[in-house]
Design a protein around this nucleic acid. Structure first.
Length: 225
DNA sequence: GCATTAACAGCCG
DNA sequence: CGGCTGTTAATGC
């Protein structure tokens, strides 16, 4: 179990709970550290807990028909994930991999279900999270069909810098260009060129092994106006 | 034309 | 050294 202070610092939804609910949440949540490259769970696993990223970076990925690794989303600091599998009581549909050393908060399924049954604040958070994910999903469809390479990189980065899904991410993130390419569905070489274009456009700054942005919404708009 | 893979040199921790 | 970046060449749709 973790302290109330730790919970409130890493879970934006905790501030919406009553004291009794927060106490339940705290008691049902533990911490775990994953090394770089470690699998948090594999596709098809029964993985009970609901997870929150306290620090680090997690990649949600699957294996395509051709047998290639495809990343679907990045989860940065403050992101909470896995409620879909818990609510449907089904095995995980994707691989979860720590891209670098990552500290997770893990809430056991029983506690999650108790909050789901009893807490208005918790449910409000879940609805907002689903709504945000739906918007992201719609954007992905547009992404694949309408955007050029640069637009796709911008969209992928705007997703991972989205403070509503990754409340603690900030404006700087340690992520390699290869990883951005995986998240964008592009080769590393094209990703590299796209990043230079975005940098020239002033919406981001490239660094070795990372990027900084000014405003994630500038990235979301890139290539659509 | 635009993107992909392969290959390689340079840089930096 | 090993990982990341920047660039070029060859190939494919």
């Amino acid at each position: 179990m973790i302290s109330l202070d730790t919970l409130k610092r890493h879970a934006i939804w905790a501030s919406e709970l009553t004291p009794e609910e927060a106490e339940r949440a705290r008691r049902g949540t533990s911490e775990k550290v994953y090394a770089k490259g470690a699998y948090i769970c594999h596709q098809g696993d029964r993985f009970d807990p609901w997870g929150g990223v306290m620090s680090g970076l997690v990649k949600l990925s699957t294996v395509s028909d051709a047998g290639k690794q495809v990343s679907l989303a990045g989860l940065a600091t403050g992101a909470w994930f896995g409620e879909g599998s818990i609510l449907k009581n089904e095995p995980r549909r994707y691989d979860l991999v720590a891209l670098r050393e990552t500290r997770l908060a893990l809430m056991d399924g029983a506690t999650f279900n108790w909050l789901f049954e009893h807490s208005v604040g918790f449910n409000r958070f879940l609805v907002r999270q689903f709504n945000e994910r739906l918007g992201q999903f719609i954007g992905q469809v547009e992404n694949d069909r309408m955007l050029d390479a640069t637009g796709r990189v911008a969209r992928a980065l705007s997703c991972i810098f989205n403070p509503r899904l990754n409340p603690g991410v900030g404006t700087h993130l340690a992520i390699t260009q290869e990883e951005i390419g995986l998240l964008s569905g592009l080769s590393r070489q094209v990703t590299n060129q796209s990043i230079k274009i975005l940098e020239a456009a002033g919406v981001l700054q490239a660094e070795r092994g990372g990027v900084s942005i000014r405003d994630w919404q500038d990235l979301a708009k890139f290539g659509t106006a």
